[in-house]
Amino acid sequence: MNTLSHDNHGLRLFVRYLVLTLIAAIFVFPLVFMVMSSLKPSQQLLIDSGSLRAFLPVGDISLNNYTMAFDRAPVALFVANSLFITGTTVILSLFVCSLAGFSIAILSWRGKAFVLSAILATLTVPFETIAVPLLLMSSKLPWIGMDGLEVGWLNSYRVQIIPFIADGLTIFLFVQYFRDIPSDLVEAARAEGASWSQVYSKVLMPLSGPIIATAAILKFLVMYNQYLWPLMVVQEEGYRPVLVGLQYFFQLNTAWGEIMAYLSMITVPVLVFYLFLQRAFIASIASTGVKG
């Protein structure tokens, strides 16, 4: 895009930053509200929530809500569970879905049109619709564990991971991205005798930083925000993820301060993940930059 012009950029620069900052305020205010509220006792939080004090760390500020949240629920366990489930699924998903995307975007094979249509059609199926049939299936699926063959996937990590590895949207993201990659790159590699696996791993994937980042974020969000499914398939506290944990805080005489503290805590890992990806993402664009 057009960048700094040569003349009178002082004022222009100021206006640009002003616009950027005002927009930023719109996006960030509920989060500031959340974090500030988490530092206040419930009574004060409710009174403050009606005024600009909601955005300020004023009044009776402390970390009490955080301490009490840890007393009420095994917060660290829930976050660890969610991170493990989410992380594993994201990694497996990126691998499996990029392979499928590669196959559909680059290769020609019989049945491809049908497979692509089927994949796109699944985008329209709300998960809640298939939850009950999936539950019935999951309770009867076999698994080879430490004690040999077992039946039933309930109360496990795998039941929260494996059904979500492949999804239409992630595959579709890769398909659209790979289609944009100049075909002469692929052809050149093939001419040099590269196998299709090598084309995938040596030519395409190194160019796919931006889409990997996008797909990873999307998958991360979906997985980190799972609620209905873990509720249905996990009865043991040891496997519960963060949003099921949120229910611990909705009691009679709601502890608003603790809820805000819990919400703040479960949001931090996602922000960290995004900031990490953003760096990787920028770096990958800077280093490749050959597309188009």
């Binding site: 539950l135 019935l136 309770s139 309930l154 249905m232 398939v233 229910q247 909705f250």
Partner: peptide, 16 residues
């Protein structure tokens, strides 16, 4: 179980 999730959890467990 947290109360808000209890009935759904029991029904799912019964189905399974």
């Amino acid at each position: 179980f947290p109360q808000g999730a209890y009935n759904d959890a029991v029904q799912a467990a019964a189905l399974a």
